Computed example of a mutant assay.
Amino acid sequence: MPIRDILQLGHPVLRQVAQPVADPTAPEVASLVMDLADTVAHWRATTGYGRAIAAPQIGVLQRVILLRLPGRPVWPLVNPSIIDHSPETMVVWDACLSFLSIFMQVVRYPWIRVRYQDVQGTWHETHAGLEDDLAELLQHEIDHLDGILALDRLTDINTLCSREEFERQFKADSPYGR
Rank of each mutant, 00 (worst) to 15 (best):
I3L: 04
R4G: 00
R4C: 14
L9Y: 15
H11Y: 08
H11K: 07
R15F: 00
P20G: 10
P20I: 10
D23I: 02
P27T: 11
E28I: 06
L32K: 06
A37Y: 10
A37V: 04
D38P: 02
D38A: 15
T39C: 03
T39Q: 02
A41K: 09
R51Y: 04
Q62T: 07
Q62L: 13
R63A: 10
V64Y: 08
I65F: 03
R68G: 00
G71A: 09
V74P: 09
N79Y: 02
S86I: 01
T89S: 01
T89W: 04
M90E: 15
V92A: 12
F99E: 11
S101T: 15
Q105I: 04
V106G: 03
P110V: 03
W111K: 00
V114E: 11
Q117M: 07
Q117N: 10
Q120I: 00
G121F: 05
E125R: 01
L130Q: 11
A135G: 06
L137P: 04
E141V: 08
E141T: 11
H144I: 01
H144Q: 14
H144W: 10
G147F: 04
G147A: 06
I148L: 11
A150F: 12
L154T: 14
D156N: 14
N158K: 11
N158F: 00
T159L: 07
E165G: 03
F166Y: 09
S174Q: 08
S174P: 06
G177M: 05
R178I: 11
